[in-house]
Amino acid sequence: MVSEAAPPGFLTTNLDKAVNWVRTQSMWPVSFGLACCAIEMMATGAAHNDLARFGMEVFRASPRQADLMIVAGRLSQKMAPVLRQVYDQMAEPKWVISMGACASSGGMFNNYALVQGVDQVVPVDVYVPGCPPGPQSLMHGILTLQDQIMAGEIKR
């Protein structure tokens, strides 16, 4: 906000807002595609939808460099430990978006093979519905997460 006490050209704010703003505007997702949703996640990052507008286009292959995990697709029982390991390797602060019906709840596959919701394995911040969610849905999820971060305190 523009303070009257400060000389012209200066903005004042509090630390929470400044840090949160920085965090939201350069959030790097780990490239963790599982199934159909991963294709839509890639489509979101590509030219037509251009995720770079939200500072999120830098998909990192290494979880150490990432702040956000977009769990894109169905999570099988065999993959669940791998997902958890990748999550554990990410440095704090970190967030998780559960993309699509399968990641959120098992979707239409209520059977022996799938984890019925990735929130059994990792803490989820935003659930994006759809099968698969279109790029607009994913972007809405990302904006929702950014709003959440902006509204919150610096906890971690």
Binding site: S76, N111, A113, L114
Partner: peptide, 11 residues
Amino acid sequence: IGYLHTGMEKT
């Protein structure tokens, strides 16, 4: 393989 086994044949 098997990291994406979804049990679709059973479903």
